[in-house]
Design a protein around this nucleic acid. Structure first.
Lengths: 144, 144
DNA sequence: TCCTTATTGATAATAATTTTCATTATGACA
DNA sequence: TGTCATAATGAAAATTATTATCAATAAGGA
């Protein structure tokens, strides 16, 4: 919040409510969820303002946006999850994974080759969880 | 295509056209682009069928879907890009990166710890390109 | 407290994707 | 090769996440 203030933004109740919800959350939240929960602290807050505030927070590096399966996005504090997850393509369960210091050398190499300053990284592993490995063929739910 | 046939799907002209376009492409294509180009081989093909066929091909592991900046998605053959890219948060330019064999040990470790069989992975690095590093503060285009 | 203006919220607009459903074309079988 | 059940198609409508518009409001400096 104070970062926003020093960046020249006003500290409104709506923004405070959104930040507070994000702070209280221990995982990803969709804009709709943020909206619902933020009403606790700012009953009049509208979904549009939630979107705007989330965009603001992303821009200032306070939260990160991840792409969910289909259309919607989720947001969470940057420190909360380091953006690494393991997704089962059978049942879509998602597991956060840690311990990705191994990526450092790769990133250093990419920095050297491209001239980019790499600020963040996101690793997504896709596969089959223990249970889904035993399902021989995935049901085709788009037939009949 | 023959995979689809053995999986019990019909080999229609629409599907053949979509597969052919994907095969001919050397990069990501949005559904709209696939649609436009697929008309070369199947003039009557509709956008809806393109969406359906792309979903089918993703499900069967022939193509991969990536999430672009905002709402739309892109599709490409799995072997074509290994799903790694470097995005500049200043100008949004995206660079494909190669040489991610370094990830192997990490993936092996995750497999052991979680019991997942990891089939694929996606690495996205975010940072600032050479040019955007020199822009002191990003213009706030949502003011005024 | 007053005043400028950034910010808000309601509504409408946009755009990607999905659903619906009558029609068509595929491919198994004769 | 012809017949037929039905998977697949295409057009249009519906859905859903997100964004633009704009008058009304509230933040915060004077």
């Amino acid at each position: 919040m104070s970062d926003l203030k020093s960046a020249g933004y006003r500290l409104t109740q709506s923004r405070a409510a959104v930040v507070r919800i994000i702070d209280e959350s221990n995982g990803w939240l969709r804009p709709e969820q943020v909206h619902t929960q933020a009403k606790k602290y700012c009953p009049s807050i509208g979904l549009v303002t939630v979107y705007r505030t989330l965009a603001l927070l992303v821009e200032h590096g306070y939260i990160r946006r991840i792409h969910f399966d289909d259309k919607c996005h989720g947001y969470a504090r940057v420190e909360l999850s380091h953006g690494h997850h393991l997704v089962c393509r059978g049942c879509n369960q998602t597991i956060e994974i840690a311990g990705t210091e191994d990526l450092r050398p790769l990133m250093k190499q990419v920095q050297n080759e491209t001239g980019f300053v790499i600020e963040d990284h996101l690793l997504e592993l896709v596969g089959l969880c223990r249970e889904c490995q035993h399902i021989p063929t995935r049901p085709r739910n788009h037939h009949g």
